[in-house]
Amino acid sequence: MAVGRTDMVHDYRMVPEDFVKHLLGTLVIVVALVLLVSALFSVPEAPPLTIRGYARTQPVAFEQMALRALDGQGRIADYGPPYNHGTGSLQSPMQAAVGILHPINAATDFILKPLTMAAVINPALIKPLATFRHASAAQQAKWETAYSTALAKGVYRHGRVVVAGTGYGPLPSLMNATLALGRSGLMSGALTRNGAVVTRFNNQNYLLFLQGDPLHDKAAPLQLLGEQWGIIHPAVPGYPGAWWMTIPTWIYQWPFVAQSPAADAMALSLGFGVWLILALTPWIPGWNRVPRYLGLYRLIWKNYYQDQASEEGSSQTAGNKVGPMVGSQ
């Protein structure tokens, strides 16, 4: 095989090719494959966790979740940018620099506003709402702490969660009204309301209201949690998920990443680093020679090398008789 002092051959032939047929051929293959697999397996769609569904199946946990939004113990209440000034989920200076882009006051937006709307059709709510609003922060906290403790032993009975004892102020009324709103299905409308427009594209508060235990309890059996390599798992077992995210998902499992309070920032940055190595492969000394040393190219170009070897062989045989042949292009 005649080559220059380069890392690639130069003596190859051009052979006839019907490029349009090639392209249409691959398109037909893909379309046929996709239609067949779609007909056989349809599409994985797992029913979402709705507020109504959660309020109906887990009334006590629902009130606990609602109370966490009200007393500031929920994840969104103390999240930080871009939702509010909390620090609970602040992972990096970049996150802080962004500021408050999608403001959320969990107590007001998730609980008090929906209840204020509900009070229009249920005037019995007006008084407990006023009592709560006019109480001092210390008094509100006292009620919330006491009711939170009591809820742990709360029992659902006839549409309400009943707790033992007293000293919870207006909270039993307010939380049971929130439960009723949730069970009715009207809570989602209250959370996504935007009085300025008639469209409802932004369902941020609906989704974030259920963040925490409700979604985690639903996700865990499906192996969707981060520590379960959840990024690459589908919500319907047996179907493929986003398997192309395997490397960042693996990075999430590294102990120093998993245990870091800035796990997301760290995992995604490291994942980007891996991609950067891939993208810059041509210019990374040593790494750009790896395929040469691995030798798998010998399999990929097996036919070419065989043809070249047999041509060289016949060329030499012929050369013994009639002299060297002129190589191809």
């Binding site: 992972q91 970049m94 932004n202 940055s269």
Partner: peptide, 9 residues
């Protein structure tokens, strides 16, 4: 959010 892309909601 951690990457400072909070505008992507």
């Amino acid at each position: 959010n951690a990457l400072g892309l909070g505008w992507v909601n």
